[in-house]
């Protein structure tokens, strides 16, 4: 299974995302922002970073890139797409997911191992989790405060589209503790925390068992491979 990982100018976590795909058993394919050829990939990851220096608004210019025109078209046809951090911002700016992301309430960049609850497992990227499973993966952002209109928020809650919620602490002032969302179809998922940084013992968050042994992020990538095999 070929999973495309997009690199925009200013993307940081593309190599980590590609590594996570390989560790989960998939083949990672690099996709370039200026290239509208998706190279027949079976799914796409929009990784974290600061695409176009966060000019205009985080993710706004990346959303206009040639590669995104194709990704938006294919996502609307069911192609699994995962947006991580800046990638989540790109999904929101592309209108593949609703709402917006604004500067953290406390106005500081935050970097911590963050506990989340997986509240929806009927998606291409979460099907290997148990419902309401609590996971810990790194969070690192300056503009991660999720907002939406009152009506939109009610719809997201009502339709069960909120996929990840912050547990114990709301690190950035996100409405309703929202850490990540899915679309109606379940093929598009976006979240602020970084699953690709918790995929390999020795490099993940600390757990009760051992330092840096957390690999909760790996199931995101195993989920999409599972979804593709069963598609």
């Amino acid at each position: 299974m070929k999973i495309g990982v997009v690199t925009f100018p200013g993307t940081l976590d593309d190599r980590d995302a590609a590594r996570a795909v390989r560790l989960a058993g998939g083949e990672a394919v690099s996709l370039w922002h200026a290239d509208s050829n998706l190279q027949k990939v079976d799914a796409v990851i929009l990784p974290g970073g600061f695409s176009y220096g966060d000019y205009l608004r985080c993710g706004a210019i990346a959303a206009q890139a040639p590669v995104m025109k194709e990704i938006i078209k294919k996502a609307n046809q069911g192609l699994p797409v995962l947006g991580i951090c800046n990638g989540f911002q790109v999904l929101v700016e592309s209108h593949l997911l609703p709402g917006g992301l604004i500067r953290n309430e406390h106005q500081h960049f935050i970097c911590r191992d963050q506990k989340l609850r997986v509240e929806n497992v009927d998606t291409a990227w979460t099907n290997q989790f148990a419902l309401n499973q609590e996971i810990t993966i790194p969070l690192k952002n300056g503009e991660g405060g999720y907002i939406a209109t009152k009506d939109e928020l009610a719809r997201l809650e009502g339709e069960g589209l909120i996929t990840f919620r912050y547990v114990d602490v709301n690190p950035n002032g996100s409405m309703n503790d929202i850490a990540g969302l899915r679309n109606e179809r379940g093929n598009v998922v976006g979240l602020m925390p970084h699953p690709e940084h918790a995929v390999e013992p020795g490099f993940g968050p600390d757990t009760d068992a051992a330092m840096r042994s957390g690999v909760d992020g790996l199931l995101f990538f195993k989920s999409v491979l599972n979804a593709l095999v069963n598609a």
Binding site: R57, A60, E93, G99, G100
Partner: peptide, 8 residues
Amino acid sequence: DFLSNAVI
């Protein structure tokens, strides 16, 4: 459509 985001 582009220079502003109507949500914010």
